[in-house]
Design a protein around this nucleic acid. Structure first.
Length: 502
RNA sequence: GGCGCAUUCGUCUAGUGGUUAGGACACAAGGUUCUCAACUUUGGAACAGGGGUUCAAUUCCCCUAUGCGCUACCA
């Protein structure tokens, strides 16, 4: 049977990076095996599910270029089938009606409430002590006919154990005695997660279930459902979790946008770079290679090389430079400076457009100039945002001066205020206006004034680009062209706050 | 509370019953340079703790600690 896997997020928020990695691993596995990668939206919890979140998930996958096969399955569409399955088990005596009134849960921490309840039961709890478990079929049916509300629970056998060989965590076993008669159908007729997942996975003919480790213990319950339904269980692979710094849970609520995939798209990440980074979180090619494109990842990905310990996604909310994981940032920079220029240009275009810096000529008369510009400045950038921020002076006359650039390269030598316009005058007659001629002229200019060429070059960089750092100054001057350079060198803007310090 | 899972540099990880415990990011120093990156050289940095088993344990076993997960008429 050919491989079929699924990514099954619940649409209760934007696409979490942990989910994105789960999707990626499913995708890589499917493509590696030449199988299918399916998408199922688990929206059985209608109160928490939103269309917006579904859209965010689809957008996120699209951005990462993890294209799914076949139609998207919405779990809520299958609720009837899930109900039928529960009823079938009831008819076969594999499940029973539980007439216990639904317990009211206090508001507040649900997790704490569950732990408290479990603590009170102190291991004395017999999982098979439900008074309705052995109610006669007649009496059970009679009470149902009398409109008494009931939930349907799976009748778990007294003795025995479930087991499965997890592709990541190895052999997993659990005694029936540790598993409660789980609820399949709520008293309002609504199917519950474990039932829904199993039914859908059967219907979608899923061969390998690859999901987060948080489902590892749930798997035993699901296996019981597979068995009751008389269906063979798929292979399972559980992925170690991704944690926040300090080994804490990485949560949407606490950590906010940092865990959302869309943040990375919006902050100027290259999809290929982020995908590459994500692939290395919890999985290793077992070689020293770090940079891998999608075809390579597909080629070498195996479940066996997934590790069992959770990975920390590092970031520092208080440090703008470290707003996300160092390695992710580095990888993005690596992609920006090494990827084929032709692939980078459209991404830069999108960024410039969003900042209203795009001009149609960049694809027309100035196409060559635009390409050269991107190539000239890309090696120092970390994200696509840098093209419109630090790189703004290349695309607009309206740019800001970086304060350290002014202090360090301009204001420390007041004579520069006179020299730079003089340099402009000198450059005016330079022909051809290329790197070598500009260099020669600037060099001579510096010599005449008895200063190092660096002083002039750095001052000019601050004036012309607003930045203290950047490409070779002579390269920049030649590239931007005589007119723009001369105007900027003559501008008094950069000196104004020097005159009137706060 | 019970059950489960995990634990190698700050982080991502490689690795083995005998290794100078390897790589990447980050960090530090030097080289290069008009600046900053890139590049390059070098450096600091780890086997959670305690017991076993063994000639030998980071590697195998047990215990402890810590973290995480599950323990719902949530998914």
């Amino acid at each position: 049977m050919s491989t079929r896997v699924r990514f099954a997020p619940s649409p209760t928020g934007y696409l979490h990076i942990g989910s994105a990695r789960t999707a990626l691993f499913n995708y890589l596995y499917a493509r590696h095996k030449g199988g299918k990668f399916l998408l199922r939206i688990e929206d059985t919890d209608l109160e928490r599910s939103t269309d917006e979140s579904t859209r965010s998930i689809i957008d996120g996958l699209k951005w990462l270029e993890l294209e799914h096969d076949e139609q998207i399955v919405f779990q809520s569409d299958n609720a009837d089938k899930h109900r039928q399955a529960a009823l079938k088990l009831l008819a076969e005596g594999k499940a029973y009606r539980d007439f216990t009134p639904k317990a009211e849960r206090a508001e507040g921490s649900i997790k704490d409430a569950i732990a408290d309840r479990a603590r009170q039961q102190q291991g004395e709890k017999n999982m098979r002590d439900n008074p309705f478990r052995d109610l006669s079929a007649e009496e059970s049916a009679a009470r149902a006919v009398a409109s008494e509300p009931f939930a349907i629970r799976l009748k778990v056998a007294e003795t025995g154990k479930t087991s499965f060989d997890d592709a990541v965590f190895g052999l997993q076993e659990r005694n029936y005695g540790e598993i409660e008669d789980l609820i399949l159908l709520r008293s309002d007729g609504h199917p519950l997660y474990n039932l829904a997942v199993v039914c859908d996975d059967i219907e979608m003919e899923i061969t390998d279930v690859i999901r987060g480790q948080d489902h590892l213990t749930n798997t035993h319950k699901q296996i019981l459902i597979y068995q009751a339904l008389g269906h063979e269980q798929p292979r399972f692979a559980h992925l170690p979790l991704i944690l926040a710094p300090g080994g804490k849970k990485l949560s949407k609520r606490i950590h906010g946008a940092i865990v959302s995939m869309t943040t990375y798209r919006d902050e100027g990440f290259i999809a290929a770079a982020f995908r590459n980074f994500l692939a290395l979180l919890g999985w290793s090619p077992k070689t020293e290679q770090e940079i891998m494109d999608l075809p390579q990842l597909i080629d070498i990905f195996t479940l066996e090389n997934i590790n069992r310990s959770s990975a920390i996604f590092n970031f520092d909310a208080n440090n703008p430079r470290r707003w996300t994981d160092d390695k992710a940032l580095w990888m993005n920079a690596e992609y920006i400076r090494t990827m084929p220029l032709a692939e980078l240009l459209p991404l830069v275009k999108t960024e410039l457009k969003s900042e209203k810096l795009w001009r149609e000529e960049y694809e027309d008369d100035d196409a060559v100039w635009f390409e050269k510009t991107v190539d000239l400045i890309r090696s120092r950038f970390f994200t696509l945002k840098d093209f419109s921020a630090q790189g703004r002076a290349y695309f607009s006359e309206d740019f800001d001066f970086d304060e350290t650039a002014l202090k360090k390269n301009l204001w420390k030598e007041p004579k520069l205020r006179q020299w730079l316009p003089e340099l402009a005058a000198k450059l005016e007659s330079v022909e051809p206006f290329d790197h070598d001629s500009v260099y020669a002229a600037t060099n001579q200019f510096a010599e005449e004034r008895g200063v190092k060429v660096g002083l002039i070059a750095n001052a000019a960089r601050a004036m012309i680009t607003g930045q203290a750092v950047g490409a070779s100054m002579f390269e920049i001057i030649a590239h931007l062209g005589k007119e723009r350079v001369i105007n900027r060198l003559r501008s008094q803007l950069a000196w104004q706050s020097f005159e009137n310090p706060q």
